[in-house]
Design a binder for these strands. Structure first.
Length: 242
DNA sequence: AAGTTGTACAACCGCCTACGA
DNA sequence: TTCGTAGGCGGTTGTACAACT
């Protein structure tokens, strides 16, 4: 899966915690260019990190739409239920929790929720070494298909012609479809959730960003022009929360 | 006040899969 | 078909900070 944008010069990759400056560089670069190949992001953003590290930082911390608040009782209940069905499929569980990342769910489970399990059963809860050996028969588990992954553009607030956030009939979102060709659908993003966090109706924002190439029918100039505004809007919303 | 222990979560590691050459 | 590489995922470790002694 080579990437012709990835020049090869090996740079000594920095490790450890990210500085605010690094965060800013990564955020600026991705909002301006999208990520595409993560290795090239690291190089072009002037970061002495490897692509994986950049991806992780973006997905788990910098990506707009992430909730930074404590898990609600409802979210915890969802995690418990889904874990009982899926086992340690953190990315899939996270898809059902808009604004949460797989890492966040995993951490919360390991540090808190796991302790809430009944002590009687101290087997590792639903360890599923084999996909076919789920503790709950597939037929019984809710056979919900994984929620569609969201595209780069999906988290961009799209404003209608009148500047409102009503997405119906306006904005480029109406042209953006999920990557699943067999189940192609236009997502219905929702800008205002009760908690004031950017959210997406009936979708898992944790799905991750896809390479720009996968976004079809979009005027990329419009898309990129909107990113700055989108981020500003996002930060404004976040500012209201704290 | 200083040292120790516990907790939360950010980040890394290693493996697996998909994909292009 | 094989090989190399990037991306994705789950497990694990590292770090910062709070609570406790």
């Amino acid at each position: 899966m080579g990437c012709n944008m990835c020049e090869k010069p090996k740079v000594t990759n920095k490790k450890g915690l990210w500085s605010p400056d690094e965060d800013q560089k990564l955020k600026d670069y991705i909002l301006k260019h999208g990520h595409g190949c993560w290795t090239s992001v690291a190089l072009r953003a002037g970061l002495q990190r490897n692509g994986k590290s950049c991806r992780l930082r973006w997905m788990n911390y910098l990506r707009p739409g992430l909730k930074r608040c404590a898990f609600t009782a409802e979210e915890e209940s969802t995690v418990m239920k889904l874990h009982a069905v899926m086992g340690n499929k953190w990315s899939q569980i996270a898809m059902h929790l808009p604004g949460r990342t797989d890492n966040e769910v995993k951490n919360h489970w390991n540090t808190y929720l796991r302790k809430k399990l009944p002590k009687v059963d101290n087997r590792k809860p639903n360890r599923v070494p084999d996909e076919n050996k789920s503790p709950i028969p597939v037929s019984e588990s809710n056979q919900q298909l994984p929620l569609p992954k969201l595209l780069f553009a999906d988290w961009i607030p799209i404003f209608g012609d009148n500047g409102s956030s009503n997405l119906e009939g306006g904005g480029i979102m109406s042209h953006v479809r999920t990557e699943s060709s067999s189940n192609s659908q236009v997502l219905s993003p929702e800008l205002s959730q009760p908690d004031g966090v950017l959210g997406w109706q009936d979708s898992g924002i944790c799905g991750g960003l896809q390479p720009m190439e996968q976004i079809s029918d979009v005027n990329f100039h419009d898309l990129f022009a909107l990113t700055e505004e989108a981020y500003t809007h996002f930060e404004f919303n976040q500012a209201l929360l704290f």
